[in-house]
Computed example of a mutant assay.
Amino acid sequence: MRINLPTWLTIFRVALLPVMVVVYYLPFHGHNITAAIVFVLAAITDWFDGYLARRLNLTSAFGAFLDPVADKLMVAVTLFLLVESHRGGWPGIVMAVTAAVIVGREISISALREWMANIGMRATIKVAFIGKLKTVMQMIALVVLIVQHDAEALRLYHVGEVLLVIAGVLTIWSGLHYLRAAWPMLRDAEPLEDSVERDA
């Protein structure tokens, strides 16, 4: 299997995640800013690999599989990192609940898309504007929260937590949008045979 440039960028994005985690915990001045830069670099590759794949027609089955996995890993790893560093008090509770909502939505919608693909109806729940808005707000919130770790003014006003809650609301809204689009099939379709066997 030959790996093309967009897929290499996706692999690079995954490789940046442990780098971000290590930098976030290293005891040097500006470690939070450096970790935020690493996160932003990973987010840029998310946009750039998709752009190259469309522009140069460099699509592949492996790239199509890996790209959404890399996106969800990036969000989940960063959320777990931030939840661990925000333990205690109401900010910690809000962070943990919002992170659980976001990760739970990502898992649920991924499962929904897989099921829709199995019945040949994946196009019914293609990405909508609300989903893109949710992604942008998530990225902004996560960058602010990473910086906020050592930024007294941001911590004082809980800027990152507020932005993440907004992202969480958009996450629920977009999830309901996809669920509504898929609901007629969920309501009327017969259970898939392999699903029945797996659940038995």
Rank of each mutant, 00 (worst) to 15 (best):
P27R: 10
V159E: 01
W8D: 03
W90H: 08
P184C: 07
D71F: 05
L186T: 10
M20D: 09
M121H: 12
D199R: 15
V69G: 01
S174K: 04
R113S: 04
D150T: 11
V159K: 06
V23I: 15
V143N: 06
A43D: 09
G168P: 04
E193Q: 12
A123Q: 12
A153L: 15
W47C: 03
L16Q: 12
M137S: 06
L79C: 12
L16Y: 13
T7Q: 12
V143P: 09
H29M: 06
I130Y: 11
R187A: 14
L133I: 14
R2L: 10
G30W: 13
L58F: 03
E193F: 11
P91M: 05
M139F: 08
G160P: 01
H86Q: 13
S85R: 14
P191T: 12
A15T: 12
L164H: 01
K126D: 12
P184S: 06
N118A: 14
A111C: 09
V19I: 15
E161H: 07
V77E: 04
V136R: 10
E114C: 00
A141R: 07
L56H: 13
V19Y: 00
A15G: 09
L26E: 13
I37D: 00
M139E: 05
G63R: 02
E84D: 13
G131Q: 11
S110R: 08
A167C: 02
V83M: 12
K72S: 08
G168L: 05
L112S: 01
G120T: 04
A36Y: 07
L163R: 10
I107E: 07
G50N: 02
V147Y: 09
V94A: 15
V147E: 07
M74S: 15
V19A: 09
V83S: 07
A123W: 07
A61S: 06
R105M: 03
G175V: 02
E197V: 13
R187S: 11
D49K: 03
L52Y: 04
V101L: 13
L156W: 10
L16G: 11
L5P: 03
R155K: 15
A43V: 14
K72Y: 10
M95G: 06
L56M: 08
A35P: 05
L26W: 14
D46Y: 03
W173Y: 08
T124C: 03
L41S: 09
R105D: 00
W115V: 02
T45K: 05
E152M: 09
A189Q: 09
L156T: 09
A181Y: 08
V101G: 05
G92R: 07
W115N: 08
A153W: 15
L112G: 04
L82T: 06
V103Y: 06
I93T: 11
V162H: 10
A128E: 14
V75E: 04
G50S: 02
P91I: 00
F28H: 06
A182H: 05
L145T: 02
V127L: 07
R2G: 01
F129W: 13
V22F: 14
I172L: 11
G63S: 04
L170P: 01
D188S: 12
P91E: 01
A43P: 07
L66P: 01
N4A: 10
L192P: 00
D194H: 15
H158V: 03
H158L: 13
L145G: 01
M139G: 04
V162I: 15
